[in-house]
Design a protein around this nucleic acid. Structure first.
Lengths: 343, 343
DNA sequence: TTGTACGCGTTATCAC
DNA sequence: GTGATAACGCGTACAA
């Protein structure tokens, strides 16, 4: 027996029957395109509402070969950075009538790729990837599908389509320069497991490169794969402080403010005074910092601007406007009270 | 001129031509259903891969009248509670082959409803709503569409379909009982703008009800609509402490741990010692608390269990198994060092 | 301004 | 085990 629509599953045809017009007139009326007299349109809309008409996006998508779905993948949702970027983009897309299909890749390019392949079966209007490090086959898959793609949060000279972000390497250098200016001689870095967060690694590389070119010794590095970022910062800081006196760092650059806050507590526990005994620098100016008794020296990243700019550029591409391919936004080093000029 | 597929947009028909079999055999082979010899199937799969075949979900959805899309709406992504719930659910759905379409409602039932209506045009396999307070028309719309629906984070006796969460009213009572046992006489509550977070209001109601039935005066309430939760807690606490001495609260129950941390800093600034001068109680045991020098008295909510349980129940409904309609998970009051027995 | 014919890519059904 | 055919609901093209 042929499948039957459920009783209430109204379609254009039913509305057309009730309104005594052709199916096409209903379609036009509902889409708001020209070619229907106002009287008819109003009449049809009323009937559609009364019949609880729900359009079928699949049918429309099938014939138009596209959809109002936008794919967004971020490493996770716990990091406020990604929550902020997503929120600022979603506003733009939402009011433009798009729906977001979200993935969390956990920094795993295979997960990201598998998700992207599944999403491509829906012929999405656009795709947003975090960063510039992806599965080798992803770029081709997206190109082949012709899906406008935005890479956000990091920049590269060779984006899939368009990228909007900050130059993490340069940001790391900037922080190193700031430290050098203050006279810090033994730089440290605290982050998470190597290879996961490639942006953080880029910051570290830039940080180390600037110190190296100044003839200073290598950066002391400690990592923690603890899931709770505060605890991770605390643990890694404890590790980096462990060892003979005066061999430890005199300043630590953290993966982000959360880890830095954990580091602050570790320093207090270790009896170290900040900034007298050691300097602490965060990244990403997160919510928490606003209420700390000592303002944290950190780097303010333009997350909201990044989201809105990125969304705008992606929308432009979706509408066929070939805009720029690379937008690097500036970061701002915010000098707080957790660093100070060395004697 | 009829629209033409782009060169690379391969479809079943093309594969069938190359494989020298009928289109239906290809369809069966790709779906892994019975009725294709193993030799043929392997051959077809290889060709499909070589031709970069991407299935068209819209076409499938059109004929099957369903999809592998699951809608999830949460108030926002900044609150770790929702990030945690989403993450624990997504794992289950992802491995079951579903894709998540996400919305952030900003605690606005109209936004939630508009989003849900748009999503229904895709005939989603399931829908997840946060809480039990929705647009009056949403329940009907979901019922009519026959979409299995999970309400998470709060419970009700009359769920749309199935609900998994905690009893916020009871949790508030539990906290009040704890405070009464310790001898706190002047309860306070700090939250955000009234009417936004209905779960928080339920906790407040339960908290106040328990105190009322113990014959104690009304709960002192302060609110802040500041976006940064830490700052909100700080500001509202400052407000509640303002006033003649001994009229202020001797214990404050916060909307969550973030606001409580802001409150802690406000107390310190005001020269109040915690827990000697005032007690502080949070909610939701968030990441931050792990590194605080003084362990926060708070309520631990089973966020992960909630997500996995909810996902399981929704999957059951999607597969046609009518499971329970209401699951209330227990909360655990964690006594920290920010409260103590009163003299 | 309105209507008719056809096709989008896939799956259900039934025949072989 | 395999293939032919008819939908699924809607939009494009063109005729009226």
């Amino acid at each position: 027996m042929p499948r039957r629509r459920t009783e209430k599953d109204t379609v254009l045809k039913d509305i057309a029957d009730v309104a005594q017009v052709s199916l096409m007139t209903v379609s036009r009326a509902l889409r708001g395109v020209d070619g229907v007299s106002e009287a008819r349109r109003a009449h049809i809309l009323k009937i559609a509402r009364r019949l609880n008409y729900t359009p079928n996006s699949s049918a429309r998508s099938l014939v138009t070969m596209n959809s109002d779905l936008i794919g967004i993948t971020v490493p996770n949702l716990f990091n406020n950075v990604f929550a902020e970027i997503m929120a600022s983009m979603r506003g733009t897309f939402d009011s433009a009538g798009f729906s977001s299909v979200v993935d969390t890749s956990e920094y795993d390019v295979d997960i990201e790729f598998a998700w992207a392949e599944r999403l491509l079966t829906w012929r999405p209007a656009g795709m947003i990837l975090t960063g510039t490090h992806h599965h080798p086959a992803l770029r081709d898959a997206l190109r082949r599908a012709g899906v406008p793609t935005l890479q956000i949060w990091d920049v590269t000279d060779d984006p899939i389509d368009v990228c909007v972000g900050i130059d993490h390497h340069a940001a790391g250098q900037e922080v190193a320069q700031y430290c050098l200016d203050l006279g810090y001689m033994r730089p440290g870095f605290v982050g998470t497991t190597e290879g996961r967060d490639t942006r953080a690694e880029a910051r570290l590389t830039g940080f180390a490169a600037r110190y190296a070119s100044a003839g200073m010794g290598a950066v002391r590095i400690a990592r923690s794969d603890e899931r709770n970022p505060f605890v991770a910062g605390q643990n890694a800081t404890r590790d980096i402080l462990d060892g003979p006196a005066h061999s430890g760092p005199d300043v630590i650059f953290y993966l982000n403010d959360h880890l830095a806050f954990g580091g602050l507590t570790a320093c207090q526990t270790a009896g170290l005074s900040v900034p007298d005994d050691i300097g602490i620098i965060g990244f990403n100016s997160l919510d928490l910092t606003a209420v700390l008794p000592v303002p944290l020296t950190t780097v303010r990243t333009p997350l909201r601007a990044m989201g809105t700019t990125g969304a705008r550029h992606l929308l432009a591409r979706i509408h066929g406007v070939a805009a720029v391919r690379r937008v690097a936004l500036p970061v701002e080093l915010v000098a707080g009270a957790t660093t100070r000029r060395q004697a």
